[in-house]
Design a protein around this nucleic acid. Structure first.
Lengths: 239, 239
DNA sequence: GTCGTGGGATTGTTGAACAATACTTCAATC
DNA sequence: GATTGAAGTATTGTTCAACAATCCCACGAC
């Protein structure tokens, strides 16, 4: 290497997202993931290898690779010799999910003073997005914005691995709504809470924001658990 | 169902571990995982589909399913059309891993008062195990005990998902030692720290234990990052 | 020394085949 | 009528062989 090549070293690293296109298995996994998250595939449904491979024109082997990926994300469950099913979270799962979220979100918010200013801006953007969706009565977009809001809170910690983990947890949380047939417009009131949290954050009061968030999580968990137990005892859709 | 069947309902639930045996792909994944963690497969090494499928007498398809599982755990990295390689963590990965561990371990310890007493006992058992291994100069067992210690700390939170995530993080951390050719006996002094943390925990001083743990993590991260940058500049093993 | 340009090796994906297991149906029995 | 048992059927688990797509490497031209 000569001195004239120095500018090469100063170039930014190759972005992983730019590098190679995804494989067929990953594309299928992405598609199925979106179907599970948006409810096109209801919890408990069995995914037939033969039918899906025919419908999406991929071989069974490729499809099974996609199944493995999604099983690791807990969106599908794999039962030996029985097939794969869309996860059907239990009440215990709901409690566990909120336990995880407390561990991921609260410390991230409480130490938000060290966070990147860009990360705080992302929180505000998610709040704006959610309110806009509410104004248009676009409940699905509102749920997406709420997910992005909490993703942005966890991202304040600035850890790639925590971000990815949080993504999985939120995807699973969304599954919970489907298993309860929970209309997403019920969650509109929580948007005001989001706004308060961001305001406290932007004003430089992370502890206040964290306290608000803790109350938010308590309330949300209580609501979900209550609805869940009512459904489990009542005539909910069983499989 | 008649009244005479009531005793059936009172039976304990079927244990998941008991239910179905694992598939071939999962067994292969378990084996490869242990090879990566114990260093039989060095970081950066490429895993040839053909050679491994012949050596372990599984088809390429089955082997690829195992690869997908381990890629999601970040123990292997999959490059399209190039194959799978044992992960080679970078210095940025080390920092991220410790960031994650602070989020998982510190809150768990700080709220240890709510933890199951059995979980606290597991922490003590891991400490004992580590000291026994040190006395026998069994460095590999010492490393394993240390992993189990931190796993037990995270388990104080009582969340299944956090436990699994922590497991992955610790497995990756162990990879870091291999990428640096770091002899595990270097970590013997940390055992005394573990003992202090457990003592504070058992005495009912979780905040003290957390402070000790925070110092531990800071020291450990500093040591690793220092060694890492030295290796990256020096004549370390590149690929 | 750099830049094309092959050939060879490896991965990506498919389709078919068979074994192993689970599910379903239906008759026999109490 | 409900339960048990034993068929057959359907689905998954796994392997194998084949081919296309891509990458790697060595060779030669400039």
């Amino acid at each position: 290497m000569t001195a004239t090549d120095d500018h090469i070293d100063r170039l930014p690293e190759a972005d992983d997202a730019l590098a190679p296109v995804s494989s067929q298995a990953e594309r299928v996994a992405d598609m199925l993931r979106s179907f599970v998250i948006n409810g096109s595939l209801a919890p408990g449904v069995r995914l037939s290898e033969e039918r899906l491979s025919r419908k999406y024109e991929v071989s069974r082997n490729t499809l099974r690779e996609a199944f493995r990926l999604l099983s690791r994300e807990r969106l599908l469950v794999h039962q030996l010799h029985r097939g794969v099913f869309v996860s059907r979270p239990t009440c215990a799962d709901v409690r566990d999910l909120f336990s995880v979220r407390r561990h991921l979100e609260l410390p991230a918010v409480r130490r938000a003073d060290r966070a990147d200013t860009e990360a705080v801006r992302a929180v505000g953007a998610a709040v704006d997005e959610g309110e806009a969706a509410r104004d248009h009565a676009d409940w699905w977009a509102m749920g997406t914005a709420n997910m992005r809001f909490h993703q942005a809170l966890a991202a304040l910690a600035g850890s790639a691995r925590l971000n990815e983990f949080m993504n999985q947890v939120l995807a699973e949380t969304r599954l919970v709504f489907h298993v309860m047939n929970d209309p997403e417009e019920y969650h509109a009131p929580y948007l005001d809470w989001n706004r308060r949290i961001h305001t406290a954050l932007a004003a430089g009061h992370p502890d206040l924001a964290a306290d608000e968030l803790a109350a938010y999580l308590d309330a949300s968990e209580t609501q979900l658990v209550t609805a869940f137990t009512a459904m489990e005892n009542g005539p909910g859709p069983r499989s």
